[in-house]
Amino acid sequence: MREVLEMWKYSRMIASFVLAAAVYAVVLWVFAPLWIIPGVTGIRIANILPPVFSLLFGPAAAWGIAVGNLIGYDILGGALTIGSIGGFIGNFLLGYMPYKIWHRMFREPPHCRTLSSVLKFEFVTLIHAAVCAHVISLWCEAVGFVPYTPLAFIIFTNDFLAPAIAGPILMALLYDRVRRAGWLWTDVMKGYEYLPTTVKKRWVIGTILVTIGSVIGLVATIGVGLGLGQPLFFGPGLKFIGTPLVATGLVFLIIWIIGVALLE
């Protein structure tokens, strides 16, 4: 996690941050969201960008995606609500998870030119979508803004489908160009490995815990929501569950935090 703060010392990383934030904000604006819940969430084509930017720019992408979403979606797009606090953290994690897992676990570059590279890309995309959906929806349920189950389902679908379809194409187009230009985050932040020379056991355990905390956590919390009467979509009887659901979600969030700590 220290690279997230350390990046502000590097002028090139600040340029990467500006690039990630501005491109994300503009693409969010150009492909205006097709609202599902106006002011809360919608179908966002711009979501193809976070995993790509994350794998290229590392921590600069994490900040960039969070700020780009705040500007392009919340402030300019009309979605600035109490949910935006969870949105900022969730979008930060969209940019944080893919590079964190990749630079600890996979020795193949994320060029998406081989099947295994694409599969790894899809894996980190799955994790980043799950953790973002879990965090934002848990926040919205906890503050009584929008119930967990339908929101988590929408955000997850949104954050996973677009990057899963178009992300590998974009990555294949951009990876070599960015690498040749020396813009990969580890080209700038010396002392960090873009790909691990050896995969340590604790990183494997960390990745397993992150997967349990995010993907299994999302499914389990949605399961609790469904079991206690929240519909998967906005059906009749939609209501807040409160404590039992939030407690379940928090347990998995703690597992995820332990996993991230082990990835350090």
């Binding site: 084509i45 711009a46 178009a166 194409i169």
Partner: peptide, 13 residues
């Protein structure tokens, strides 16, 4: 739209 988005995103990037 998702497929075509690369046509916009790549040049902007």
């Amino acid at each position: 739209k998702i497929k075509n988005s690369a046509l916009i995103v790549a040049p902007i990037f």
